[in-house]
Structures are given as C-alpha cells and as structure tokens.
C-alpha cells in the first residue's frame, strides 16, 4: 500500500429541501483497500456515493477522489471510477453485448471489441451475448453490471448495495471477485446491509441520519461500542425474549438464528437480568464477544 488516499473527503454535506441527507461526513480510504459502507436505509449512503462520483453536487465540504477535486473535477473522476448503481441501470432492451459495447464506446476504449469479448468470456456469457439484458436473472444482472463498470479499468469502484437480492452463491462469487480486484490495486467502497460482507472489508464506516458515527476495522468498531453480549440458547428460548427486553440493563435481545443475543452496556446489570435463566433446565447462558450486528442494532436503537 503506497499510503496514498483514493478517497479523501471531509465535511461532505447534502441537503434535500430542509432535510439534511448527509451531514459533514469525512471519509479517507487508502488506495487498494476495500471499505464497507454501512448504515440503515435512508441514512445517506447512496447520496454520499453519488457525491463522490460527481452525480450530486455537495452543498458543503471538500476533498479529492483519486486526487481530483470532488467539487470541480467530476469529469476526471468519472473517467477513472466505476459506479454500480443500487438498481440495475443498464439497458434492458439492449443485448448483453450491446450494453458492454455501448459502455466501451462511452469511455472511448481502444481495442473495444477485444475488451468486450474478453469480458463476455470471463463472465461466461459468450453464448448468451445476444440475449436482452432484461432477460437476465438478478445474479446475472449484477455480474453484468460489475463487468460493465470494470470495463474501462477504473482505479476506484463505488458499489451501492451490489448484492441486494442476490443468492448466497452469487454473493460469495461476487466477493471473491472484489478481493481479486482489490489485490490488483483497485480501491473499493461498497455499501451493504450484510454483516458477513462487512466482515470481509478492510475497514467499515457506519453512517446514520447522515452522520458518520463509527469507523475502523470490524474489531475496532465492536470494541468502540463497549457492549457486552450474552448468548442464551436452548429449548423454547423464544418465550423469554419479551421479558428480557424489558429488563433493566438490557439494550436489546435479538435472535441470531436459534441463539438469543442479549446485549447491554452494563455487564453487571446484564448478569443480574440473566441470573434467573441460568437455572432453567436445558438453557445455557454464555458470554461472548458482541457481533457486528449487535453493535449496529445498538447504534440504530440509540439514535431513536
């Protein structure tokens, strides 16, 4: 890692009418890293990404993307950035090849045909190249979209919830691809709601109501939260949930699969709340490090 920053913005702010969508956000992503961009729906992730790639003007704030000024040099940024929109935004009434070819021409790529061919080949879509893009399934659309925004060999990839609605296998393959690209030096900022995806990022930033409220590695973000979590397992734990949630000291009690995570800031209070259940037969109560999801649920509930 050269230590250069691919994204270096501070005080980024955007209003829509009277609502403040992004509120003085600072992000500094070193070249070659994969950063996860997390936060609840409507927290300002998409708006931030759009400001980074010049699709929205920031009301306030300054900084650079790939060394170009985000306020004045969006043309240069667009040329070296790949942006994958949240919703599939290629032309459904063009074929797969036609879409790729159009993108290649937009970026005035040399050796267009070869690049389109090799992309089709790599995607395994050579046989289906003449199918309309609209006929593809969700997972294939996502692969096509990624390939299309990689076509001009960008240095920075901005991905807005790329894996929403995609099956687990496709999601896994997608992340394999992201890491391969990152190893080759590409910088990636990817927004997601999936914790397993967040855990595959070098660093994460968490944004809520337009404000950036947590950042760091997954371990750092968990540590910063100062949360304690106990895992309650056993038969019929379901019946305890409501009662546990109302206990003092319990921030939230939520299921992760079959296990109930009981989380709070005060360890003693948690112990006290859980004491009666330790004696129940068939129930185990064990302390465990809080998961990222515990932290996010906590952050989100705190904001309300």
């Amino acid at each position: 890692m050269s230590g250069n920053l691919a994204i270096d913005v501070s005080g980024l702010t955007k209003h829509f009418g009277t609502k403040i969508a992004v509120d003085h956000v600072d992000i500094a992503v070193p070249e070659g890293e994969v950063w996860g961009f997390l936060g609840p729906n409507g927290s300002g992730k998409t708006t931030t990404i759009r400001m980074l790639c010049g699709l929205l003007h920031a009301d306030e704030g300054q900084g650079t993307c790939l060394g170009y000024d985000v306020r004045t040099q969006s043309e240069q940024i667009k040329r070296e950035t790949g942006y994958m929109t949240q919703r599939f935004s290629f032309w459904e009434d063009l074929s797969i090849r036609e879409n790729l070819d159009f993108v290649a021409r937009m970026y005035e790529l040399d050796d267009r045909k070869a690049k389109v061919n090799s992309t089709l080949d790599r995607l395994g879509l050579v046989k289906r190249q003449n199918q309309m893009a609209g006929a593809l399934s969700g997972g294939w659309k996502q692969r096509l979209a990624l390939a299309a925004c990689m076509l001009h060999s960008p240095k920075l990839l901005l991905l807005d919830e790329p894996t929403a609605g995609v099956d687990p296998k496709a999601r896994r393959d997608f992340w394999e691809e992201i890491h391969t690209l990152s190893d080759a030096g590409l910088t990636v900022l990817v927004s997601t709601h999936y914790m397993d995806e967040a855990e595959r990022c070098d660093r994460i930033v968490y944004i809520q109501n337009g404000k950036l409220i947590a950042r760091g590695t997954v371990a750092e973000v968990i540590a910063q939260s100062k949360l304690f979590t106990f895992i309650v397992e056993g038969e019929d734990v379901r019946r305890f949930v409501q009662r546990l949630q109302d206990e003092p000291g319990v921030e939230h009690a939520a299921f992760f699969g079959a296990a109930l995570h009981v989380t709070g800031l005060d360890r003693d209070a948690l112990e006290h709340a859980l004491a009666p259940y330790r004696n129940e037969s068939g129930i185990t109560v064990l302390e465990a490090p809080p998961s990222l999801e515990d932290v996010f649920i906590h952050l989100q509930e705190q904001a309300q």
């Binding site: 699709l55 667009k78 929109t85 935004s89 290629f90 937009m106 970026y107």
Partner: peptide, 13 residues
C-alpha cells in the same frame, strides 16, 4: 424512469 439515466450520467458523456 428506468434508472438508466443515472448510469448515463455516471459515464463521461
């Protein structure tokens, strides 16, 4: 309406 406009704008046209 189809969202392709955002894509078009993200490219250097």
């Amino acid at each position: 309406e189809r969202g392709t406009y955002e894509n078009l704008l993200a490219m250097p046209a």
